[in-house]
Design a protein around this nucleic acid. Sequence first.
DNA 1: CTCAACGTTTTGTAAATACTAAACGTTATG
DNA 2: CATAACGTTTAGTATTTACAAAACGTTGAG
Lengths: 163, 163
Amino acid sequence: MTINYSLLEETHFIEDIGLFFEQMGMPRMAGRILGVLLISDPPAQSITDIGHRLNASKSSISIMTRLLTENGLIERVASPMPRRDYFRFKPGGWVIYMRQWLELMAGLHKITERGLALVQDKPDAMKERLLEAHDLFSFLEENFPLLLEELRQKRVLHQNNGK
Amino acid sequence: MTINYSLLEETHFIEDIGLFFEQMGMPRMAGRILGVLLISDPPAQSITDIGHRLNASKSSISIMTRLLTENGLIERVASPMPRRDYFRFKPGGWVIYMRQWLELMAGLHKITERGLALVQDKPDAMKERLLEAHDLFSFLEENFPLLLEELRQKRVLHQNNGK
DNA sequence: CTCAACGTTTTGTAAATACTAAACGTTATG
DNA sequence: CATAACGTTTAGTATTTACAAAACGTTGAG
C-alpha cells in the first residue's frame, strides 16, 4: 500500500489554517474551509466538495461558508454546473479582513474617549493609561489604511515586473 | 434615594471593555478587569478590590489577572500593604499586545509558505491566492513595528511639548 | 410527475468555556 | 497560638459553542 504524502501535507496545511483561526477566536472549521480554498484545484469548490475533502457535514460547511463570506475572505462564484454553489477565496480577502479588524480597534478608540470623560477631573497621571490606548488606536485608524495602500502599490508594481 | 450616575457610567465603560475583549475572542471577565484598572483611583488595585468592584469571585479575578499579565496588559506592583498583590495597567501594555498580535500574523506567513510548496508545480494563477497572504503578512511583519515606533516618537514629542 | 442532488435550516449533542463556590496553603495580627 | 485575611487551586456547574444528523425546500433530470 502506498501513502499519498502530498495529501497528508495538504491536510496538515489545512489543519494549521484551522488552528490559526481558532487562535483568532473563530471556529476551526471555518479555517479548515479557507485552507481548502487556498490550495484547491480548481480554486472554486462546491459545499459538497469541501465537505468530502474535510469529512465534515454539509451543515457545518454551509454555516461556515456564510461566516467566511461575511468576513470577506471567500465569495460565491457563478457555477459551471447548474444547481451548485461554488465558493472560492476572494481576491483581496485578507485586506478586507484586516480592515474589519481595524474597525474593531477603532471601536476601542471610541470607548477610551468615554473613559477619559470619566477621569477628566483627575490629574494627568490618571489619564495617561487611557491616553495610551486612545493615541495608539486613533493612530492605527489613521495610518494602517496607508500601510495597506502602500502594500497594494508594491504588489501592482511587482506584478507588472513579472510580466 | 439618589443614584450615582458616574458609577453607572463607569460600569458601562467597564462592560464595554469586557465586550470588546469578548469580540477579540477572550473572556469577558478579563476585559472587565482591565476596564477597572483603566479608570481606578488609585491605578493599582488588589484582587479583592477588583472582585468587590465587579461582584465577581476571587477565583475568576485570580485566573484572569494571570491571563492579562501574560498578555502584557497589566502587571503586579509592589504592595504598599503587606500580604496583598496589587495590579495595575502596564505602561506600554497595548503596544505589547499589538506585538503579540503581530506574532500571530507572522505565524500565518510561515504557513502560507508551506502552502506555496504544495502548489509549486501549478500555474501562477493557482499561487496568487497564497501569495496574497504571504505578501501581506510578511509586509506587516516588516512594517508594523516601524509604525509602532513612529507612534512612540510622536508621543514622546507630544509629552515634551506638554511640559 | 417523480426522484435525486444540492444547499439551508432546525434540532440535537458532546465538548469547551466562563464562571462560582469551596477547599487549601500562607502569613500577618491580635 | 489561634484566627482572619489574602490569593491560589481544585472541583463543580451552567452556558455557550462547534459540530453532526435529520428534516426541509428547491430545482433539474429522467
